[in-house]
Each structure stands twice: as structure tokens, then as C-alpha cells.
Nucleic acid binder design. Structure first.
Lengths: 132, 132
DNA sequence: TCCTTATTGCAAGTGACTTGCAATAACTTT
DNA sequence: AAAGTTATTGCAAGTCACTTGCAATAAGGA
């Protein structure tokens, strides 16, 4: 991920037709990790500077609507968000450290017969590199 | 799915160390579909005969614990249950009719590098045969 | 039949959002 | 820069899908 992507948050918001408020600015600025994150993790990270969770949820769904964020779920149904500009990939949920990380996509689509596939979502359960 | 699997619910419950109550009996008897189902769908199906949803949820998680049922999630995070004895497969969520059906597994596991994979969960989004 | 313990129903509680609403703050227009 | 318009925010309350506490009940064993 190139740093330039983070440079002009104002521009990003403008292009998406969203207002450049200090809340959205702080939110977008805080999304620096390569990992998918939960709303709660973000709330903890933003801390007392933020406070209101309804604003956070509203912002997250707006950013999802405009295509800046994507939603994914782990094998327990927990919601994760991540930047769309990272491109398609899948996820590995570590049964040991409970992390939820990105892994390259093995392109499973072609093998499903007789139905038109638009997209997929693949979650691996296993041991990540650190826990191996 | 062979009919014999449904024949002795009493025996199944006994083997699992669960009591043969009329609620669990009705619940298991009603799981005849080849499709994954939600708790709500089951509650609707069982109807006034049943009534109490906490009993249903308790039964579902017991049946999951003993391995009779498996849990899965669609791309919106909704919980589905299905019989474990159907063996491993993946799912197709139809964007048109909103159904959530079983499809054969394309075995994507092998292609993920450098991590120990235990299992996976793959959801395709697309058009099912009926909607194609 | 008695007894022990799982199971049930009801009500209340949770977690993770979602919504209504009045106050506020951003962009637009003048 | 002032005024106007409308998105956005914070707070409180509501919703959805379960989950839990608890007293009453019912299974299966002694």
C-alpha cells in the first residue's frame, strides 16, 4: 500500500460526495493496517477522541456504499471491514491467535458447474505463519 | 440422503446424550430439506406447535455441539444450519432469488501457501440454475 | 414410585448495530 | 463575509438475533 493513497482524505471524501468532517477524517486516517478490522477495534483505536458509535457505524456504511471499504465475515459471523483498493483476496482465520489475515486468492470460481458466479468469499481456518 | 437416517430420532438423541423430548423430536423431524436453514425459518415451519425461540436456539446449539448440525454464514453474516451428514460442500447465494444452496467444493485449500489449513468456508455469489 | 438432573417457558439481558430527532457544522449561494 | 441549504453528528431509544437466569416440568435411571 502506497502512502499517497492516504494523502488527500479531503479529496477522497469530496469525490465520494461526502463531507469532510473531522470524524470521517480521523476515521479514514486511522485505517492504516493491512488487516481487516472490526467496528469495535476501530472504536477502541479512535478512543475518547471519537466516542459515538452510531456515527462510526454510519460512516462505515457510507464508506462501504461508495466503494472505499468492503465488508467480510469470519467463520463466527463477525463483521470485518477493509479497504477495497487492496484488490481481491481471501482470508485466513487463525485458530490459535484468532487473527483474521489476508491471503492470496486460489481462484476457486472456475470449478463450480452450471451456475453463473459473480464473486466469492473464502475463509480458511487454520494456523497462520506466526503460530505454525 | 437416505430415509433411514430419519427413522430413529430417539436413538440419535440417546447416542448424543440428549433427552428425547417432543420439542427436540419435532425439531429434528422437521429438518428434511437439502438446504441450509435459518433459526427463523425453522421457527416459522414448526409454527404454533413450538412457540419458544430460546428452546429452539438451545436445541440448535446442542445439536451443533454433538456434531449433528453445522453452522454457516452467508455473505451478509446471516446464520444458517445444516445436517453434518451431508458431508463437506460449499454454498451458492443467489443474488436474484436470494436462496442459499449447496454446491460441490472445488477444493481450494491446496493453493494457499505457507500456512496450515484445517478447513475452509466458501460462499459463491451469483445466479443459481433456476435464475440463470 | 421416587429421585436426580436435563429441558422447557417465560422474562429479562446482550451485542452489534440502526433509527428518530433536534442541534450543529459543511459546502453553496449570494 | 453573511445567509441559506442540507449533510452529519450525538444522544436516546429501538431492533434483531440470539443468550441467560430461574422456577416449573418432565425424562430416564434406581
Amino acid at each position: 500500500m502506497d502512502d499517497s493513497h492516504y494523502c488527500d482524505i479531503e479529496e477522497l471524501l469530496l469525490e465520494c460526495g461526502l463531507r469532510n468532517t473531522k470524524q470521517k477524517h480521523a476515521l479514514i486516517k486511522s485505517i492504516t493496517s493491512d488487516r481487516p478490522f472490526t467496528a469495535q477495534q476501530l472504536l477502541d483505536k479512535l478512543g475518547p477522541r471519537w466516542g459515538n458509535q452510531s456515527t462510526l457505524h454510519r460512516a462505515l456504511s457510507q464508506l462501504k456504499e461508495v466503494g472505499f471499504l468492503t465488508e467480510a465475515f469470519d467463520s463466527h459471523g463477525e463483521t470485518f471491514y477493509e479497504r477495497t483498493d487492496r484488490g481481491h483476496h481471501d482470508h485466513l482465520e487463525c485458530v490459535s491467535c484468532k487473527s483474521y489475515k489476508c491471503v492470496p486468492c486460489p481462484n476457486p470460481t472456475a470449478e463450480v458447474p452450471k451456475a453463473k458466479i459473480i464473486s466469492h468469499q473464502l475463509i480458511f481456518r487454520g494456523l497462520c505463519l506466526k503460530c505454525l
